[in-house]
């Protein structure tokens, strides 16, 4: 079991923490250096947390649990017009990013209105590639409920809905969870009350994802996504030249590799692990709906019969 954590501290000697985590068998998922500060997203083996905490204290850094680490979340707005952007959507996306998730913003083509809203097949497939979708809806209870009845048709991942009224989750059809006090806000969310609302959203998402993880743990993936990431980084050198943000984006049971599918899918399918298996034996390598990227979904243990 790995604990997802975020390390914030000075650039000086931060390499020591990275090396320690690697030596303990953990993974470094992301490294952001901002002038004199560094933010590391780490997966640390649960039993070794104390050692990492001690090292963090020695380096005068800060270690916080980031439950959204290693997940890819879609924040969905009814459209990309002034009505929804930039404030609320960007605030939500940015906040979840701070908590460790990779967020992608999706603006629907015809997502407006309670009667006329639609989700196209492409949009549905694109959203389904993520671990979780946050639908950012508006001010009125009636509209949120009516819209929820049909907008999420075909979406198989957990759906979090946000809006202004304080509704119970049971009242919002098809939603996994509902978070109130949002609504259509046209200013930056920076008051303490608004930040608490964002915290609440992050907590709710954290809980939902923890449940997903528990569900997956019953039939664990044959290969850990962080392991896939490490092997690709070691064996496919072209990934270093990829200028996309997070060239290998982790998901709960897979990864998105930002290389063209046509050219690289064979190379990635035949990736060798030291255990003597290739990647295609433990995971499905699929074309992604996002550009022409590669989507890797780990096969469950029940399908392969072994875990590496």
């Amino acid at each position: 079991m790995f604990e997802p954590v975020m390390y914030t501290g000075g650039v000086y000697k931060h390499g020591q923490i990275a090396e320690l985590v690697e030596d303990l068998g953990g993974y470094i998922l992301q490294k952001n250096i901002m002038q004199t500060e560094v933010v590391l997203l780490l997966l640390v083996p649960l039993e070794d947390m104390a050692i990492v905490e001690a090292k963090t204290a020695e380096l005068l850094g800060k270690l916080t649990r980031a439950p959204l680490t290693g997940t890819e979340i879609a924040t969905v707005a009814p459209t990309l017009a002034y009505h929804h952007l930039p404030h609320l959507d960007c605030d939500v996306a940015e906040f979840l990013r701070k908590k460790g998730a990779k967020t992608n913003m999706v603006g629907l083509a015809r997502g407006v209105g309670k009667r006329i809203c639609q989700l196209s097949a492409y949009e549905r497939d694109l959203i389904n590639e993520h671990d979780l979708a946050v639908f950012i809806l508006g001010n009125y209870e009636h509209c949120i409920i009516e819209k929820s009845k049909k907008l999420y048709e075909g979406i198989e991942i957990p759906i979090i809905v946000t809006g202004a009224p304080e509704l119970r989750t049971e009242d919002v059809p098809n939603a996994t969870a509902y978070v109130g006090s949002f609504g259509r806000i046209l200013h930056q969310m920076r008051h303490s009350e608004e930040l608490r609302t964002l915290d609440k959203l992050a907590d709710v998402i954290g809980n939902v994802l923890d449940n997903v993880r528990k569900e997956i743990a019953k039939d664990p993936p044959a290969v850990a996504p962080s392991r896939i990431k490490k092997e690709i980084e070691d064996q496919v050198h072209e990934i270093i030249d990829s200028l996309h943000p997070l060239p290998i984006t982790l998901q709960i049971n897979g990864a998105r590799v930002k290389l063209p599918y046509e050219e690289y899918h064979e190379m990635i399918e035949n990736l060798k692990f030291v255990e003597g298996v290739t990647l295609k034996e433990v995971a499905h390598v699929l074309p992604s709906k996002m550009r022409n990227f590669i989507l890797i979904k780990a096969k469950p243990k029940s399908e392969t019969g072994f875990v590496i």
């Binding site: 001010n139 009125y140 209870e141 009636h142 202004a164 009224p165 304080e166 609504g183 259509r184 806000i185 046209l186 200013h187």
Partner: peptide, 18 residues
């Protein structure tokens, strides 16, 4: 004015912002 009190409140804030 609105039958939905919460909606009316948030709409008022929205109009002020705009």
């Amino acid at each position: 004015e609105s039958p939905d009190a919460v909606g009316a409140k948030t709409t008022k804030i929205l109009i002020k912002d705009v």
